[in-house]
Amino acid sequence: MTSIKNFTTNINCGSCVRSVTPFLDDVEGVTIWRVDVEDERKVLSVEGTASADAIIKMVEDAGFDISPL
């Protein structure tokens, strides 16, 4: 079932978004994602069927911190 999962991250600029893009694009079940770099929490919102664990692993593999909201 498709859902939206939100996480706090340290993805804080356009360059960071570009760095994490290939990792998040490779997560099976991710339909769409975005990072609100204007929010102090740097909220990553992910829509799709991917598990939170899979999303967290890929963001960490990209070198960023991530925690579920």
Rank of each mutant, 00 (worst) to 15 (best):
M1A: 01
M1Y: 00
T2Y: 00
T2F: 00
T2A: 01
S3M: 03
S3D: 08
I4T: 12
K5E: 12
K5M: 10
K5R: 12
K5P: 15
F7N: 09
F7H: 14
F7C: 11
T8E: 15
T9G: 09
T9N: 09
T9K: 07
N10H: 03
N10L: 05
N10W: 01
I11C: 09
I11E: 05
I11Y: 07
N12A: 08
C13P: 05
C13V: 12
S15T: 01
S15E: 03
C16K: 10
V17I: 12
R18T: 02
R18I: 03
R18L: 08
S19C: 03
S19F: 11
V20A: 04
V20D: 08
T21E: 04
P22F: 08
P22C: 11
P22L: 02
L24Y: 06
L24C: 06
L24E: 03
D26E: 11
V27D: 00
V27Y: 00
V27Q: 00
V27G: 00
E28I: 00
E28A: 08
V30S: 01
T31E: 03
I32F: 09
I32P: 05
W33I: 10
W33E: 05
W33G: 03
V35Y: 01
V35A: 12
V37Y: 02
V37C: 11
E38P: 12
D39I: 15
D39A: 11
E40D: 15
R41H: 05
R41S: 11
K42W: 11
L44R: 13
E47M: 04
G48H: 01
G48C: 01
G48Q: 02
A50I: 00
A50D: 01
S51L: 04
S51Q: 02
S51F: 10
D53F: 00
D53Q: 10
A54M: 04
I55W: 06
M58K: 12
V59D: 05
E60V: 06
E60Q: 15
D61C: 03
D61M: 13
D61R: 15
A62F: 13
F64E: 09
D65P: 15
D65I: 01
I66Q: 08
I66K: 11
S67G: 14
S67R: 10
L69H: 15
L69A: 14
L69K: 13
